[in-house]
């Protein structure tokens, strides 16, 4: 009688959502916990990364047939928006803060 080996490794939308939830929660925790506002601003890309992972996962595992790339598009826009918000936040902090 042959012994069955382990099945192939796979990932599903649930795994994607787990990762997204963890990253968003880490970013939200840091934004709330940090006393330094500038350091809290730097966690915006972390939260946006979690949201982008969730959107890209939905685009990858969408069940409506065909390739629906709206999630990928939103992930691209989120990355650009994160860069812009960090630049603005650090610019304002550079005006108000101390070294």
């Amino acid at each position: 009688m042959a012994i069955e080996g382990p099945g192939p490794v796979s990932a599903s939308l649930v795994a994607v959502f787990f990762v997204a939830a963890g990253v968003i929660a880490v970013g939200a925790f840091a934004a709330a916990w940090r006393r330094d506002l500038t350091a809290a601003v730097a966690t915006i890309p972390v939260m946006f990364a979690g949201a982008g992972v969730a959107f890209a996962g939905v685009a990858r595992f969408a069940a409506a047939g065909g390739s629906h790339l709206l999630g990928q598009e939103f992930a691209v826009l989120l990355a650009i928006a994160a860069l812009a918000l960090v630049a603005l936040g650090l610019g304002i902090a550079g005006r108000e803060g101390t070294r």
């Binding site: 006393r35 506002l37 500038t38 890309p45 960090v86 650090l90 902090a93 550079g94 803060g97």
Partner: peptide, 23 residues
């Protein structure tokens, strides 16, 4: 796109223009 944008974010956070603002 994410690689480029997050490299930019890292450069700004680690750069010399960083200032501390206490809440």
């Amino acid at each position: 796109i994410a690689l480029v944008c997050y490299a930019g974010c890292a450069f700004m956070v680690a750069g010399p223009r960083y200032r501390v603002v206490e809440t």
